[in-house]
């Protein structure tokens, strides 16, 4: 999958009907414009959704800025994506006063999948950052409590099941498609 395909998933909305969202995005752009990457930054066609892509090394600064300036304290979740050459982390926040959901995302190269953890400034991110590391191999550096949370203990450390190129090397997905009882010793 090339980056070309990803561009087409962004469907920016028209200005009218989304005035609040555009006002927020324009204010952020004017204040933090230098760390924002245009490519994945837009107002979604759904009401109350803003997506912002930023430089991965500036994630902490940006979250702090949003918390101080825009009262963004409600953290929803973190979802990963596999874009081929890059891995993407999407932090979903909700600004309760303005009633706008803000998604902050960073692209991290697959060869060097590391970025700074935000668990110390957003305590709610503790579990999801661990989950992201397990499922995608995206490492939040500086996480206060790194441990395995979802996968079994005997899962190999270098296999990440939600990456697109995980090909099920041990036949796990076929295993459960059995019929009839197995010989149990």
């Amino acid at each position: 999958m090339s980056n070309q395909d990803n561009v087409s998933i962004f469907r920016p909305a028209l200005e009218e009907g989304h005035e609040d969202e555009y006002a927020l995005l324009n204010q952020i752009k004017s204040e933090m414009g230098d760390i924002i990457i245009e490519e994945g930054t837009y107002v979604h066609i759904q009401p109350r959704r803003v997506f912002i892509q930023i430089r991965p090394d500036k994630l902490r600064d940006f979250v702090k800025y949003m918390q101080e300036k825009h009262g963004m304290w409600q953290f929803s979740t973190l979802s990963g994506r596999d874009l081929g050459n890059d891995l993407q982390a999407n932090y979903h926040f909700f600004i309760n006063d303005k009633k706008i959901a803000v998604t902050i995302r960073i692209n991290v190269p697959r060869t060097m999948p590391e970025y700074q953890s935000i668990t110390d400034i957003v305590p709610a991110a503790e579990f999801v950052e661990n989950e992201l590391r397990e499922m995608f191999g995206l490492v939040p550096v500086g996480h206060p409590n790194p441990r395995r949370c979802e996968l079994p203990e005997n899962w190999p450390a270098d296999e990440f099941p939600l990456r697109k190129d995980w090909q099920d090397p041990r036949g796990l997905m076929k295993r459960s498609q059995t019929t009839g009882p197995k010989e149990v010793k």
Partner: peptide, 30 residues
């Protein structure tokens, strides 16, 4: 069509978030 969606709903226990990425086929991308 290719798109990305953040769907939220208040379940009995709290907020449920589904982040869906579609890619033009009949299967979800993520």
């Amino acid at each position: 069509q290719p798109n990305e969606v953040l769907a939220r709903y208040e379940a009995p226990r709290g907020e449920v978030v589904h982040y869906l990425v579609t890619n033009g086929t009949d299967k979800p991308e993520r």
